[in-house]
């Protein structure tokens, strides 16, 4: 029997498979490893950021700073490597430390100043974007042997598709994220916080440590997503990735995570990313559709999923009430 908690995940999976099958019926070429490989690569940075967002939303919070942190990271790395000629690996490490500390600071403010996550991360969004402008307002191209090597690294699928380093990184992040969420005490605490912070505290969950950890994780993954984005575009640009946090939220919710927190799966977010990628791919194949259709379909799906989640909550409440009536 399927746990009602995971019904939205199953629904997302079914929708993806049905939609993919429909696409393939219309464009048989879409069933190729090439398409899948590109889909994974094109959405790698979004997927990595969405894993962080999954933890944040599972805990009942929100992180609006993701897009800005990605832009900051890409500009920071591009300037460090391109203009200052720092070793890319050092630049990567530095930017990950910065973004993690940035996320942790937001977590501290949310917990200890009791400011809603929406407000804190909104401030973080402006701050990170502003810092990116401060470093450079131009698009900074980068080129370095190490970066070229990473960009050139891939596995070839049968059929010509490529599993690039960025796609592998995303898959790794999803795998680790799923284990952390499902099999560690930290993960259990995240779900507990999302269920009911007061109860969680009364049950001995270290609420402060967990909150800081969640936003630090989101900051870290935003930094990592920024690195993936830099590799993907071979440049850093402070105007890039505006609104990526919203795409990430959409992927998380379409993947079946309850927007109010407490229920959902990291694997669901992966499906959410695949659905978004599939829509984009379909539009490319069709060739006549405006790319804004991506947004429209995502919007419609979001509505559908929020209604589905409400419906499940309502249904299980009612079933419980009926069960109690029968007992009485």
């Amino acid at each position: 029997m399927i746990d009602t908690r995971n019904l939205p995940f199953v629904a997302a999976l079914v929708i993806f498979l049905v939609a993919y099958a429909a696409c393939v019926l219309q464009f048989p070429n879409m069933l190729s490893t090439r398409v899948i490989g590109n889909l994974l690569t094109d959405n790698a940075f979004l997927g990595i950021a969405a894993v962080g967002m999954t933890f944040v939303i599972l805990s009942g919070g929100i992180d609006l700073s993701i897009g800005s942190v990605i832009a900051f990271t890409s500009v920071f790395v591009a300037v460090m490597v391109g203009s200052l000629e720092v070793n890319p690996l050092i630049a990567f490490a530095a930017v990950l430390v910065i973004s993690t500390a940035f996320g942790a600071t937001m977590g501290l403010m949310i917990r200890f100043l009791a400011i809603p996550p929406f407000v804190v991360t909104l401030a973080g969004m402006f701050l990170a974007r502003g810092a990116a402008y401060l470093i450079s307002t131009e698009s900074v191209p980068i080129s370095h042997p190490i970066i070229d090597a990473i960009q050139g690294f891939y596995f070839r699928f049968p059929g010509g598709g490529r599993l690039t380093a960025m796609a592998m990184l995303m898959l790794l992040v999803f795998a680790v994220g799923a284990v952390v969420a499902g099999r560690t005490r930290f993960g259990a605490n995240v779900y507990a916080l999302g269920g009911n912070p007061q109860s969680a505290e009364l049950m001995g969950v270290p609420v402060g440590r967990t909150t800081v950890g969640i936003y630090a994780l989101s900051g870290f993954l935003s930094g990592l997503a920024g690195i993936a984005y830099t590799l993907y575009t071979s440049s850093g640009y402070s105007l890039a990735t505006v609104g990526v946090e919203l795409d990430a939220i959409a992927a998380v919710v379409i993947g079946g995570t309850l927007l109010t927190g407490g229920a959902g799966l990291v694997a669901g977010t992966f499906i959410g990313i695949l659905i978004q990628g599939l829509i984009q791919t379909y539009i490319v194949f069709d060739g006549t559709l405006s790319s804004w259709w991506t947004k429209i379909v995502i919007g419609a799906l979001l509505f559908a999923f929020i209604v589905l989640q409400r419906g499940i909550v309502w249904y299980s409440d009612r079933r419980l009430a009926e069960g109690r009536l029968k007992e009485a």
């Binding site: 779900y191 507990a192 269920g195 009911n196 109860s199 969680a200 049950m203």
Partner: peptide, 11 residues
């Protein structure tokens, strides 16, 4: 408020 409805009994 003493337990978490979104977790299983064992959790």
């Amino acid at each position: 408020v003493n337990l978490l409805e979104n977790l299983t009994v064992a959790e």
